Simulated scan of single mutants.
Amino acid sequence: MATETFHPFGRLPPELRDQIWDLATLPLSPNHRPAAHFFTLANMREDRSMISLKDTISHDPWHRYCLVAPQCSGPGKMSWTESNPSAYLSEIGLWGACKESRRRVQNYRDPLSWSDWREVSTDYDGSDKLDRLPLLATFYSDGQNQNFTIYPRSDLLCIQPFNFDTINWADIHCNNSTVIGAFVGVHHMALEFDPTWGDPLRGPPPCLDKTGPLRCIATAVSFETHWVNNLWFIDYRIRRRPGSTLNEKRHVFYANSCRYVQVRETDTDWELATEPDIFEFLVDLNESLEEYFAVYYFAEEERPETNCPRWGQPVIGVLACEVSSNEESPWLAFKSSEGGICKM
């Protein structure tokens, strides 16, 4: 019978043990493949009474916004470990297994602390050096601090707002809040698409005058997330057609037991869900935003004849989720019950 514990490991030659630790660390290298990580985003000034500090990433107390344990088993159920598909969970064991493993992952990653990252990013010269620099973060779980590293400039940060009404994306950047990499710009940030977001768009525009998720999402796709290069919407209802192959180069981000794959509107290898179609939703949202900016940012005689230009908005894209194993985790089962998630 197979066992998960290899008891003679400590009797192996040190050189072989080091190679094993290095191989365990390799999959999260940016030269290997980009990873996907999940976090809840909370406004600690407005919602602190409902957030347990033990669920937060270590942060400066004066920061308004903070990254918190994700809600992967249902809304409001925050946990760093329960049903969490984040790639960072593959690494926390390396930091905590023993001194030997911690030394190897520290040497291999050579991560920066949050304060060091801010100092380096302040002197950012536009080169790709930040793409290769990992950031060390810490959260508290199982009675001790758990360390992990992510690459803010190449990994996918999947953000789950704790309270849509208290999120101001512009404040996150202006206040240098504890959103990893926000000080110099996140390359890839994702939101999990909810089909009910399209309901308010059927009413009278403009969408930014509304409250709740739609206002938060509308400001995210406009100029308030100018510090994000690419903003992705994960639609768990999208399925890849049987037998299809993805030959074109596209973005792929890897998590535990699944991966997130870029879907283009012109692709024929995917089956899109309707009511609403994710791409139709984005078109409707953009039209509502254009009307808002035309009304509120220009006087009548100054309105342009074409769409009102917006500045600094991220590139918008869509991701599908594909399961990479036959055994679904509780998180994948929960998402499947909502509709979507296809086998690779």
Rank of each mutant, 00 (worst) to 15 (best):
K249T: 06
F279H: 09
T245F: 04
S154H: 10
S177N: 11
E301R: 13
A170S: 13
L319I: 05
E91Y: 15
S127E: 14
C207P: 02
V68M: 05
D125A: 04
R11A: 02
L246H: 13
P61W: 01
G339W: 15
G181C: 05
D235E: 00
P195A: 08
P200R: 10
P161Y: 03
Y297S: 15
E302K: 00
S115Q: 14
T5I: 15
D235W: 01
L157W: 01
S52C: 13
V261M: 03
A36T: 09
F298V: 09
H188T: 06
T245H: 11
E302N: 01
R215E: 00
L53E: 05
I238E: 10
Y296F: 14
H37D: 11
T81N: 01
E280R: 00
F233K: 08
N43H: 00
N307C: 03
D125K: 00
S79G: 11
K343N: 15
F293T: 02
D277R: 15
I92L: 10
G96Q: 09
R64D: 00
G312D: 00
Y296L: 10
E300S: 08
M344K: 07
W270M: 11
P314W: 14
R109K: 11
F183Q: 11
K210Q: 12
G317I: 11
S29V: 00
S141I: 04
R103F: 07
L94K: 02
T306I: 05
Q160L: 15
P34A: 13
T274M: 02
W114G: 07
L136M: 03
V318W: 04
L282C: 01
I20N: 04
L133D: 02
P314E: 10
L94F: 03
E287H: 08
C207T: 09
I167P: 05
R33G: 11
P161I: 00
K335D: 04
S324K: 06
W197N: 02
I180T: 12
G198L: 04
A220L: 12
T149P: 07
R48V: 10
H63E: 06
G185P: 13
F164A: 07
T274F: 01
C174E: 14
A2W: 11
L12T: 03
I20V: 15
P161R: 04
S127F: 10
A220T: 08
V295A: 12
R118E: 00
R33F: 13
S244Q: 04
C258Q: 06
T306F: 07
N286I: 02
V179M: 13
V295M: 06
L89S: 03
G317A: 12
M44N: 13
I20Y: 12
P309E: 13
V228R: 15
S325L: 09
S86F: 08
R45L: 03
K335G: 14
A137Y: 01
R109S: 12
N229D: 11
F39H: 02
H251S: 12
L319F: 12
C207S: 11
V186G: 05
E119S: 14
R239I: 05
W311I: 00
A320W: 00
R240C: 12
L135C: 14
N229R: 15
R17T: 03
Y124T: 06
N175D: 09
I57A: 11
Y254D: 09
E280V: 03
K249V: 04
D47L: 13
W95R: 02
N286M: 06
F38M: 02
S325W: 06
R33T: 15
D194H: 12
I238A: 12
V295H: 14
I172D: 06
P85C: 03
F334T: 12
F9I: 05
T3W: 01
A320R: 03
